[in-house]
């Protein structure tokens, strides 16, 4: 018996409310982030991730207050991503009670930001979020590239090479989202997950596409992920975190039950 695999519920927060955009469908309201976080903690979440998708800069303070409130009563690791562009953004989130921050597009536009952040705050709190999309044609060897702007903008950067580079720059963990699968409920891109997980020395969190509990288990068993992240299957109480953990354990995965 050793290290457990982790389940990380993700809360997409827009203007202080939890929302979940299901692909091709409107964003649905899933409640007050503090209450949702409280429930996930009770159900046995191993960590909680907040993704701030608030569009306007003015409303960014909202997420800071959410993190402050959650951190004062929920004692598991908290990660905040979305709009992290400066060392000062990181400091604000850590001071509010976050344990880690997710850096996404800022890393693509300025990779040095990741090394500065890791040097200043330590690799343990720097999660680099990678949005990848398959670009190889059918019949070709699999190849994925980094996309920005919610999967709309190609960068031409190879996903595996990028993950390796981010780790060499000081990323302590990789949050890997398949933009092909995100919101589809068809399961993780397992080949992508496995390729990245085997390429880097740091833990990899699989994300994008979870529609049922077997998908979570497959992410670990076939995708070799160290942790699995999901949003919508937990928000609307289709499954509790506890059910998900028990299911994964029944598939032979070591879990914290």
């Amino acid at each position: 018996m050793s290290l457990a695999k982790r389940i990380i519920p993700c809360l997409d927060v827009d203007n202080g409310r939890v929302v979940k955009g299901v692909k091709f469908v409107d964003i649905r309201d899933a409640g007050d982030p503090v209450e949702v976080a409280r429930r996930y903690d009770r159900e046995g979440a191993d960590e909680i991730t907040f993704l701030d998708i608030t569009a306007t800069h003015d409303n960014r303070d909202t997420i800071v207050h959410v993190v402050e409130q959650v951190a004062s009563e929920v004692f598991i690791p908290l990660t905040v991503g979305g709009g992290i562009r400066t060392l000062d953004d990181i400091r604000r989130m850590l001071n509010a009670g976050a344990d880690k921050v997710g850096i996404n597009s800022a890393a693509v536009f300025n990779p040095e930001f990741v090394s500065e952040a890791a040097q200043r705050f330590g690799s343990q709190c720097i999660v680099v979020a990678i949005d990848a999309k398959k670009v190889s044609a059918q019949g070709e060897a699999n190849r994925w590239e980094i996309f920005t702007h919610g999967g709309r903008k190609a960068t031409g950067i190879d996903a595996i090479a990028w993950a390796e580079k981010m780790v060499s720059y000081g990323a302590g963990e990789i949050l890997l989202t398949s933009m092909d699968r995100d919101g589809t409920r068809e399961g993780f891109d397992l080949l992508l997950t496995r390729a990245i997980s085997e390429a880097v020395s740091v833990p990899v969190i699989a994300s994008g596409g979870v529609g049922n509990l077997d998908h979570l288990a497959e992410g670990v068993i076939t995708g070799k992920a160290d942790a699995v992240l999901a949003a919508s299957i937990f928000h609307f109480a289709e499954y509790t975190i506890q059910q998900a953990k028990e299911h994964m354990a029944s598939r032979g995965i070591e879990m914290r039950l």
């Binding site: 018996m1 290290l3 457990a4 302590g172 833990p203």
Partner: peptide
């Protein structure tokens, strides 16, 4: 035979 990641991160006994 699975590679162990560094940092050792997560919940362990």
């Amino acid at each position: 035979g699975n590679k162990l990641k560094i940092p050792h991160m997560g919940w362990n006994q």
